[in-house]
Design a protein around this nucleic acid. Structure first.
Length: 818
RNA sequence: GCCCGGGUGGCGGAAUCGGCCAGACGCGGAGGGCUUAAACCCCUCUGGUCCUCAUGGACCAUGUGGGUUCGAAUCCCACCCCGGGCACCA
């Protein structure tokens, strides 16, 4: 009996070797071509869960595969260590968030290492390190100088549960907080914003060239929500008071339908409401505005149908500049103050919302685009010739839009206008455990940036965490009181911290040059490694993190901090599927975690990794079920088979016969197939192919012949090396003393050898397979037909008839049609 | 409502360009071997229905119904179901 496969001992030993020998540490002057592989750095919530395991298994596989492919692979890891859970724990337990977070990081790091995932740990970045905070603040100040960071009073999304402001992106469609689930309410506060809208066009356009999942790109496009149209003024009719001097500015994407405008709608919060309301309508308008203000954003947006399209007439009319007709001015809750101009021209014939409102309020409907024959619907938004539109009549949609805008511009009434759904990024958070915003408020000089040489601004440690909902910074005199950098007078510090998405918007740049004390990073080093060649993470970051990181990259490049040419941070993105259990995402908060530790301690990391790779396509979600443990056991069983095979422990079986076919050809075909599978992320079929090859090698050994399986064995181990790194490293070293499998080149194959020497020609009669004939490569159609007709099975199927048609696809298939 | 995905054995999945009787590989299941016994390990079978003593064979089968084609899981049309995203953005 040979040596047992001691999983625990082998995995621990190789993990120590990779760490101690710095196997995956790289430098920018490495002569090999660079490859930057990155998994989204995790929020440290304690020991790894299966989602981490899956993510880092894919990431580690890429690192090892690319290294074997001849690249110098940058594989860094860090921790997104600021955030709410640590602060909430502090409030609960009184323990400062830092030791709490450091302990969670240690746990997570330990389980990542236990997985056998390899990183250049010298580059580790933690958001809460003073050395990282310093540069996050420094970047904020550069943005401030450039006008990309600004402060304004704004109605903000306030989460009562988290006691903080949220970004629009953090409010779910049902109006609840994406963290606590509480209903978000509106509040007016002075807040810091990043001007991400300056980059709206570029963020949209550059999506086209990214090798990202189409789904993620679509989500970003929708979020940016670019729409082209026109803005123009409508004069207020028959008023000699203040309102008469004003104009109502509207935004429309359909200026071609302007002749169909039958009323105008303002948002209830529109500044002209007071002026436009006539005395006899005042009480109705005031009642309406008051009622709308009591509705939350969500109630307002979730209202459905014409009944709920509530509105009120102001008593005033406006003049449609296209035909000089008077149109009534209404207020309605379906017009939003934050988009466009907060006022619209209503064209019920070509907009369903306007149609619904017009019907409810008995307003006229005039079609200005001829619907197709047989049209039975209400509003028609498709293409068609303009009608009832004087000089636009007969033009198609696109042409009419251009003509209408030209007309507006010639008369100085309006102009072409692009609007975006994207809003500026609100980054202020009323929390303690985040990166302090480096600003000082002076009674004389207002908001003054903290000078660079005073960075980082660090939160004090001697604070008390109380469940008051207020950041301890607000009541910490030592932190709060300071002096103005300009005049030296008493001043106070900003007590808000930054959204943690700020930290994660540039960490991938810091990884390239993590110990720089002169700058956040050296642009030359960043230019060497960036953009990230392969970024891997969850689909949940499709909008927020990925959009913010793209914005930061562009802004930093424009400010000369990052390389000018670096317009995008992540060249290729892969979003892995979620692990679900009982229909919902497996997560700590849902309490349905299946901890990896018990698998590490039994079947081992290699088996667990193999399972995650084998269970299905990486993009697909996976349902963890009662059967899952059995599948994992199956993976462990397979590794044991590989072990016994490689160690020469497989005994011949009496009566077994060697499988047909040349083993060398099978091995080359195997390498050809799996190399392709690796490139297209088809890891589940790689594992299947490895199992097949293992089974084939087994049969050769069991047959007891003199077939040498060494070449096949080596190819198998090399192909499996990125997937099951420990056992393959161990077996390789035993078979090739002094060698390290992960330093080997990826196996090559001979295409001629990989191609089958003989093909199996499929003979069909009327589309049904009737015979298979072994044929040599390169025979022609006539020969195929001759062979096919010679087959007794084919003759039987034909039943004496002769085919009326022959479809041949040399050399694999021939179909005889009767 | 709109926009993306996706429906294949008992289960996870495979089939890369429309072509090897669809179902690789694994899990589960059945039977057998090894063993005093069990575990481990090894071997065989395993989509359905039916015919045949058996070898073997027939028919059906990729959500449903049509269509294109010599040939469809794959392409087209309609519908059903599941998952995700967006949801008064003018």
């Amino acid at each position: 009996m040979g040596e047992a496969y001691d999983v625990q001992e082998i995995e621990r030993r190789w993990q120590a070797r990779w760490r101690d020998e710095g196997t995956y540490e790289v430098e920018a002057d490495d002569p090999r071509p660079p490859f930057y592989s990155l998994c989204m750095y995790p929020y440290p919530s304690g020991a790894a869960h299966q989602g981490h395991v899956r993510n880092y298994t894919f990431g580690d596989l890429i690192v090892r595969h690319r290294t074997m492919g001849g690249y110098a692979v940058l594989s860094p890891m860090g921790f997104d260590s600021f955030g709410l859970p640590a602060e909430n724990a502090a409030i609960r337990t009184g323990v400062h968030p830092r030791p709490f977070t450091d302990a969670r990081i240690a746990e997570l790091k330990e389980s990542i290492e236990r997985l056998g995932a390899v990183y250049d740990w010298r580059r580790e970045v933690r958001s809460h390190d003073p050395g990282y905070i310093r540069w996050t603040q420094w970047i904020f100040l550069r943005f401030l100088e450039a006008g990309l960071a600004y402060r304004k009073q704004a109605p903000v999304n306030w989460c009562p549960g988290c006691q903080t402001v949220l970004a629009n992106e953090q409010v779910l469609a049902d109006g609840t907080c994406d963290r606590s689930g509480d209903m978000v309410v509106k509040r007016n506060l002075e807040q810091w914003f990043f001007k991400i809208t300056d980059y709206a066009d570029e963020l949209l356009d550059d999506l086209d060239d990214l090798d990202w999942p189409e789904r993620v790109k679509t989500m970003q496009r929708n979020w940016i929500g670019r729409s082209e149209g026109a803005e123009f003024d409508l004069a207020v009719a028959d008023r000699d008071d203040a309102a008469g001097d004003r104009a109502i500015r509207v935004f429309t994407t359909r200026p071609d339908t302007s002749f169909g405008m039958t009323y105008v709608v303002l948002a209830p919060e529109h500044p002209l409401v007071g002026d436009l309301t006539t005395p006899d309508q005042r009480s109705a308008v005031e009642a309406f505005v008051a009622e709308v203000s009591t509705h939350s954003e969500v109630e307002r947006q979730s209202a459905e149908g014409p009944i709920n399209k509530r509105g009120v007439f102001t008593g005033s009319c406006a003049i449609n500049p296209f035909n000089d007709q008077l149109v009534p001015v209404y207020l309605a809750d379906y017009v939003l103050t934050g988009y466009g101009t907060g006022a619209i021209m209503a064209v019920p014939a070509e907009d369903q919302r306007d149609w619904d409102f017009a019907e409810a309020y008995d307003l006229p409907i005039v079609r200005t685009v001829a619907p197709p024959d047989g049209w039975v619907g209400q509003a028609y938004t498709g293409d068609g010739p303009a009608i009832n539109s004087r000089w636009l009549d007969g033009m198609e949609k696109a042409e009419a839009i251009t003509a209408a805008i030209d007309w507006l511009e010639e008369r100085g009434i309006g102009q072409r206008k692009v609007n975006f759904r994207l809003r500026d990024w609100l980054l202020s958070r009323q929390r303690f455990w985040g990166c302090p915003i480096p600003v000082i408020y002076c009674p004389e000089h207002g908001a003054v940036p903290v000078p660079d040489d005073q960075l980082p601004v660090l939160a004090p440690d001697d604070v008390e965490f109380r469940p008051t909902g207020e950041s301890p910074l607000r009541s910490h005199e030592g932190f709060l009181r300071t002096t103005c950098p300009v005049c030296g007078q008493v001043a106070i510090r900003e007590t808000d911290t930054m959204d943690t998405f700020v930290d994660s918007s540039w960490y991938y740049l810091r990884f390239a040059d993590p110990h720089n004390t002169e700058a956040p990073f050296d642009p030359a080093v960043v230019a060497h490694w960036l953009p990230v060649d392969q970024y891997i993470g969850g689909i949940e970051h499709a909008i927020l993190h990925l959009m913010y990181a793209r914005f930061f990259t562009k802004a930093l490049a424009d400010l000369g901090v990052a390389p000018k040419a670096l317009r995008e941070p992540f060249a290729r993105l892969f979003t892995q599927g979620m692990i679900r259990m009982g229909g919902s995402k497996m997560s700590k908060s849902k309490g349905n975690l299946v901890a990896p530790a018990k698998y590490f301690d039994t079947v081992g990391a290699d088996a667990l990794r193999l399972f995650h790779l084998f269970v299905g396509p990486p993009v697909d979600d996976f349902d963890w079920s009662e059967q899952t443990d059995e599948v994992i056991d199956g993976c462990a069983r397979f590794l044991n088979r590989v072990w016994r095979l490689a160690m020469g422990e497989v005994a011949p079986v009496s009566g077994a016969t060697a499988p047909a076919g040349d083993l060398a050809r099978a091995v080359h075909a195997f390498v050809a197939k799996v190399s392709d599978d690796y490139d297209r992320w088809s890891y589940n079929t790689v594992v299947a192919a490895c199992m097949e090859l293992t089974n084939l090698l087994y049969k050769h050994v069991q047959a007891g012949g003199d077939t040498d399986i060494a070449e096949g064995m080596d190819a198998l181990l090399l192909v499996m090396a990125p997937m099951a790194p420990h056992v393959t490293a161990e077996l390789w070293e035993r078979r090739h003393p002094g060698e390290h499998i992960h330093a080997q080149s990826w196996p090559t194959f001979d295409p001629a050898l990989a191609a089958a020497l003989r093909e199996t020609m499929i003979v069909q009669v009327d589309g049904k397979v009737r015979d298979r004939i072994e044929v040599g490569a390169g025979l022609d159609e006539a020969e195929m037909q001759r062979l096919a007709l010679a087959s007794t099975k084919v003759q039987a199927a034909l039943g004496g008839a002769s085919p009326t048609k022959v479809v041949a696809r040399p050399p694999k298939l021939i179909n005889l049609v009767t």
